[in-house]
Structures are given as C-alpha cells and as structure tokens.
Amino acid sequence: MMKLVRTLASTFVAMTLAAAVHAQVPAKPQVVLLATGGTIAGAGASAANSATYQAAKVPVDKLIAGVPELAQVAAVRGEQVFQIASESFTNEHLLTLGKRVAALARQPEVDGIVITHGTDTLEETAFFLGLTVRTDKPVVVVGSMRPSTALSADGTLNLLNAVTVASSKDSRGKGVLVVMNDEIHSGRDVSKSINIKTEAFKSAWGPLGMVVEGRTYWFRAPVKRHTLTSEFDIEAIKALPQVDIAYGYGNASDVAQRAFVAKGAKALIHAGTGNGSVAAPVVPALRELRAQGVQIIRSARVVGGGFVLRNAEQPDDQYDWVVSHDLNPQKARILAMVALANGSDSKSLQRVFMEY
C-alpha cells in the first residue's frame, strides 16, 4: 500500500513539474502569411534557370511546407490572396490586400503578418501599406529574385527571415518592412535596383537592420510618418484616383502628359532628369494641365538617392507644382494617390510629401 502511495505521489510530483515547465514555455508568435504570387512562388524549367521561369505557380501551403524551419520560429498559417506576377498589380489589388492586412492586424491573436510578393512592384505595395494600415504590429513584405527550382534559390531563406522579423517584438512600431537578402528595409525607402542579382533591393539611406542566423539586429528606425502616425486609413479609402508617370529624357515632348490627362489622370508624376528638371517644350503643357486642376509633381529618375528641391530648376511656387522630395517616381505615385483620395489640394499635398 505504501509503495502504491509513493508511486502515486511521485507521479503527481512529476506531472506537476511537467505542467510548471510547460507553463513557463512561451507560446510561439502567431504569424499569418498572405501570398500574392511572384517569383517566390515561381518555377523554372530546370535547376539552371534562375532568370527564366514562370512566376506565381506555387500555392501558399506549399510555400510554408517548403520551409519546415518556420515552425521553429512561429505558428504560421497561410492565405492565398492573389496568385499573380507583381507587374500586374492594380489599384484594386492594393486596396484588397490593404484591407485584409488591416483586418488581420486587428485580431488580438495575430502577432505579425508576412506578405509574399513579386519583386517588380514590391516596393510600391510596401509603401502603400505603410501609409494606410493603422497598426504597430510587424508587417513584412518579402519576395525572391530566383524561383524555388533554381540552384541558387533565395526565397526560402528570405521567407524564414521575414517570419523571424514579423515574430520579433523589436519589429513593432517600425512601419511596414521589406526583408530581402538578409537585410531589413523600410518599405518607404527601399527600391529594386537590379534585376539579376539577389542583392537587388537597396535603400538610399541604408537598411534598418539585418537578420543573421535567426536573430534580428537593428541599427536605425524610420523618422517619416507611417502606420499608426499616418493620417490615412485603408478603411476610409473606397477608390484610388488615377495618377500616371511621364518620363523625362532628351528630345522629350508633351504627348504623354496630355494623353494621360485625356484618359483621366488626376495627377502627373514628372520623372525628370537630375533635380526633377522639365524640358522647355514640356513646361507649357504642364502649366496648362495644372490650370485645368491636374496636380503636377516633380520627381527624379536618378538612381541611388538624392531629392528634388522645391523652386530649384523650376519656379514651383509660381506654377503651383509639388515636389516629391526624396521619393522616386513610383513611390511618388503611390503617395499622390493616397493623398488625393483623402482630398488633398496642392498645399496639403506638398506637406504630405515632406512628412511621409
């Protein structure tokens, strides 16, 4: 009898200790992976194909299953939002994705969100989400430069790093992030700079941090307005106005600008040379279009950094034009659409470009 009592007591103590140990093990972060297609979901004809392949082929469940190490970092569940190549992203895709991200961010059990995306317009989507999704939870956009079938595939590590960043409490409050090639970038600053290397994404002012062997290392934080400090809200945006980009170059004419407005553009981004310069034959057309109510925003086609100075090259005050500050043409288009959907005039539009 005493032996049975001692056995039961030992069993009880062991169970109590096991329960205590289990209680001390923190629950894994809950991360939702939203898949939209792109190269990270692509497949080539052979392992030697790193630049020739079909994008948007692998579904989200296979993406997750292909990286079993994800389970060591977080409890990951996936949703297939789209299955497209990112050059085909439309304004409607941006709104649909933004509203889904916002809805997930409101769920208390969700700790972070990862979005797999094609690299061609990844920077535009990341910036859009950073402007319109009101959350301090980590939202990470990730892609790959090579398909999963390639010998040098980069998608699996990029995805693992993205989930690592989305799972980290240190990532909160830093806006929408882009994780590529072991680097953590601000969605506002980053751009695709080359199309055949894995280190394709660069920020003019440098990355925010790095992911090395499963740990995040931070070196700076964004200072421009984003997410919770943004005046914009995805839930209030019903549609995005048409904003188009006209390129500046030698021997430029005003044909593109007039054609865009004829097709409904509410604003034009002038992707100018140098400091957003406007060729003499184009200036009269832009002034005329501004008089018709079209917003004119001077940006620069230069690569690698810098910004457009107001009233340099052109008398912006006199013409009632706006400058994009350090935003490249594609980022300027995103911000202009969001601001105009909010009812901005030229003065508030210029303020927005300086604050965001």
Rank of each mutant, 00 (worst) to 15 (best):
S348A: 15
T156Y: 12
G264W: 11
A162I: 00
A85M: 13
A9H: 12
T36D: 04
K331A: 05
T125W: 00
G209I: 10
L63G: 01
M210V: 14
E69R: 14
V179Y: 07
Y217D: 09
I334F: 05
Q318W: 05
E123T: 14
L34F: 02
R172M: 10
V32S: 03
K99L: 05
Q257P: 00
A339V: 13
K99V: 05
S148R: 11
D244M: 15
G209R: 09
V110M: 09
G293H: 08
T125L: 06
A20P: 01
V303L: 15
P222E: 07
A45E: 13
P241L: 07
N275M: 07
A71N: 12
I194Y: 11
V176K: 02
G206N: 04
S186G: 06
G276V: 03
E213G: 09
H270V: 13
Y247N: 15
R6Q: 11
N275E: 02
K174N: 10
T135R: 07
P222F: 04
I245D: 10
A35I: 07
R106V: 02
A252Y: 10
F201E: 00
I334E: 00
I64D: 01
L228R: 11
L327F: 05
N275T: 00
V352S: 12
G118N: 07
I64G: 09
L335S: 08
V73R: 06
P284F: 08
V338F: 02
L335Q: 04
F219G: 15
T11M: 13
M337D: 08
G209Q: 04
R106F: 02
S230H: 10
E123L: 12
R215Q: 10
A47Y: 06
V282M: 13
G305T: 10
G293R: 09
G304A: 14
N49Y: 09
G173P: 04
Q24W: 08
M1V: 12
S148N: 12
V76L: 03
S186P: 05
R220T: 14
A47W: 08
A166H: 02
M337L: 11
A259Y: 14
K197R: 15
D233G: 07
S203R: 13
V255K: 13
N195F: 11
A65H: 04
F201Y: 03
V32G: 04
E92Y: 05
H93F: 14
R287H: 09
T116G: 03
K202M: 07
V308E: 03
K197V: 08
I297T: 08
A221N: 15
S324Q: 08
V211P: 06
V282R: 05
N328W: 02
R351A: 05
R106C: 10
L104R: 11
H226M: 07
K224N: 06
L286M: 11
Y53E: 07
K238L: 09
